[in-house]
């Protein structure tokens, strides 16, 4: 028996909105530790890694490890039926081929449930090695989304370069070039507005705008985003989900042909 209850169903909806650009379907691995998902996008350029801890749920029970393959378009349809303030309870029997989502309104005056068919997905789990990153940048997630959106107008790629002076985002294309530089700004009163850089050595890497833009769909999940970079290693874009876990995106840097 698997049962997970989340008072803020909107958090799960935001997670779904953040990954549905990249993934058509995905397997949710449920264990007593929580719910994990790892999947590459269809082009195998980026990897999505979601971790929702069991103790972040309002109720969590998982008697037997369970992998639930879901079509994310269908899951999106189910969550479209939920109200913004609804509580969601997910339930599945052991070895079940369906999962049930029950939505309850705040006042408990409306209860709806939707049963969705599960899929058997051929999933490939990748082992992600521990990396000592050359630089770790933390910045407001809205600012990151804005910069990526702005610079995407200029070219297909964005160079992210980080030095002790700050972080620079650059793009170039037919119409010209664009550069955005951010200096470290520590705001002790408003931690979420700070830009902080933990630098071991300067690094500059090139990434495809299309994927960076998809990652920023996770902006509503978190005030801050963490970018971890190292030469010849995928970029990690991490959004913390308050009290529940995190959503990470990995993107292979572009390389000289």
């Amino acid at each position: 028996m698997f049962e997970a209850r989340l008072v803020n169903s909107s958090t799960f909806r935001k997670v779904l909105d953040a990954i549905k650009d990249l993934l058509n379907e995905a397997s949710f691995d449920c264990s007593e530790n929580g719910i994990q998902l790892q999947a590459m996008d269809s082009s195998h350029v980026s990897l999505v890694s979601l971790n929702l801890k069991s103790d972040g749920f309002d109720k969590f029970r998982c008697d037997r490890n369970l992998t639930m393959g879901m079509n994310l378009t269908s899951l999106g349809k189910v969550f479209k039926c939920s109200g913004a303030d609804d509580t969601v309870t997910m339930k599945a029997q052991d070895y079940a081929d369906t999962v049930t989502f029950m939505f309850e309104s705040k006042k408990q005056d409306k209860i709806s449930d939707y049963e969705m068919k599960l899929m058997n997905l051929d999933q490939e789990h990748l082992g992600i090695p521990d990396t000592e990153f050359s630089c770790i940048i933390k910045m407001p997630s809205i600012e990151f989304a804005r910069i990526i959106r702005d610079l995407s107008q200029f070219g297909e790629s964005i160079v992210i370069s980080c030095t002790k002076e700050g972080v620079k985002f650059s793009a170039q294309g037919d119409i010209g070039t664009g550069n955005v530089k951010l200096a470290q700004t520590h705001n002790f009163d408003k931690e979420e507005e700070s830009v902080t850089i933990d630098l071991q050595e300067p690094v500059a890497l090139t990434f495809a705008c299309q994927y960076l833009n998809s990652f920023t769909k996770a902006t509503p999940l978190s005030n801050q985003v963490k970018l971890s970079m190292c030469e010849n290693v995928p970029l990690v874009v991490e959004y913390q989900i308050p009290e529940l876990g995190h959503l990470r995106f990995y993107l292979a840097p572009k390389i000289e042909e």
């Binding site: 350029v45 090695p129 993107l251 042909e257």
Partner: peptide, 13 residues
Amino acid sequence: MAQPSIARYFNNR
């Protein structure tokens, strides 16, 4: 520039 696959960096488990 070329776009490599993410699988190039991570091991199959």
